[in-house]
Design a binder for these strands. Structure first.
Length: 254
DNA sequence: ATGGCTACGATCCGTAGA
């Protein structure tokens, strides 16, 4: 089973690249973020023609998440229960014996800002939600754009980023609180090359300079992580004309 | 020098992303 996550930064713009990538990579499951489109404008038929059914929570202009699957998507659920939020950032579904939660965690804008406070509150709500999900679903995957680079080795220039949003101590503590539930960062289950990132700034030739952050992740419960055989970043779509600023992250399970 | 792209929805600039 191949599970991917990709922040596509507009499903409308990236649809051709997504369809091509699905044909090449053949993932069984894909978590998408930043659709920037309402559900009515989600290209459900094009993706069905590509062999994928979809569960979608869309929003005009901002946010928006979806799960694509070659198999039936059961018990879809949108949002974090008990956490009132206009922003469409979470969708979950069951595929076979795996529960998948697709997340687009808030950016946070700047440390100390109102949006930063929202990010930390949102993370606390996510933690509580996932704690419950783990009791109900031993095989749980949480995949998406977490907007946190967990460690300095996930940052191209830790000195320049020190204390900034995406790497600040409270954000990293919020990330570690997810790991403390028993979730594992599948990327770190394996020996990895240095300087692997999943996002690069559009400006300043960020991708060419590999000036990036590793902020897109696939987490797995202990029971699921036991079966994880690989976890990698696929940089190939980032090299295309008019790319998303994020690359897909792909985890494989036996 | 704190900018530099990109996408969107409103126009021909403002908001947001990270």
């Amino acid at each position: 089973m191949k599970l991917a996550t990709w922040n596509v930064n507009s499903i409308k713009v990236r649809l051709p690249q997504l369809v091509d990538w699905l044909a090449q990579a053949r993932p069984d499951l894909v978590c998408l973020q930043e659709l920037k489109a309402e559900e009515a404008k989600f290209p459900r038929a094009d993706l069905a023609a590509a062999g994928y059914q979809s569960a979608v929570s869309g929003q005009k202009t901002y946010n928006g998440v979806a799960i694509l699957s070659t198999r039936a998507l059961l018990d879809p659920m949108v949002g974090i229960p008990g956490f009132a939020d206009e922003q469409k950032r979470v969708i979950a579904a069951t595929i076979g014996d795996v529960r998948v939660v697709c997340v687009y965690c808030p950016n946070g804008q700047a440390v100390g800002s109102e949006k930063y406070g929202y990010k930390l509150r949102w993370y606390a709500a996510l933690r509580d939600y996932l704690a419950g999900e783990l009791t109900r679903h031993p095989r749980l995957a949480v995949a998406g754009d977490f907007n946190v680079a967990p460690e300095d080795r996930d940052v191209h220039d830790p000195k320049a980023w020190e204390g900034q949003v995406h790497v600040s101590d409270p954000e990293r503590a919020a990330w570690r609180a997810l790991l403390a539930l028993g979730l594992q960062d599948t990327f770190r289950l394996f020996e990895q090359p240095e300087k692997i990132y999943s996002w690069w700034d559009y400006r300043m030739m960020g991708f060419r300079r590999n000036a990036g952050l590793r902020i897109d992740h696939v987490l797995a419960s202990a029971e699921l992580a036991k079966h994880c055989t690989a976890s990698t970043v696929d940089k190939s779509p980032r090299k295309l004309e008019r790319p998303s600023d994020h690359a897909p992250v792909v985890a494989e399970f036996s």
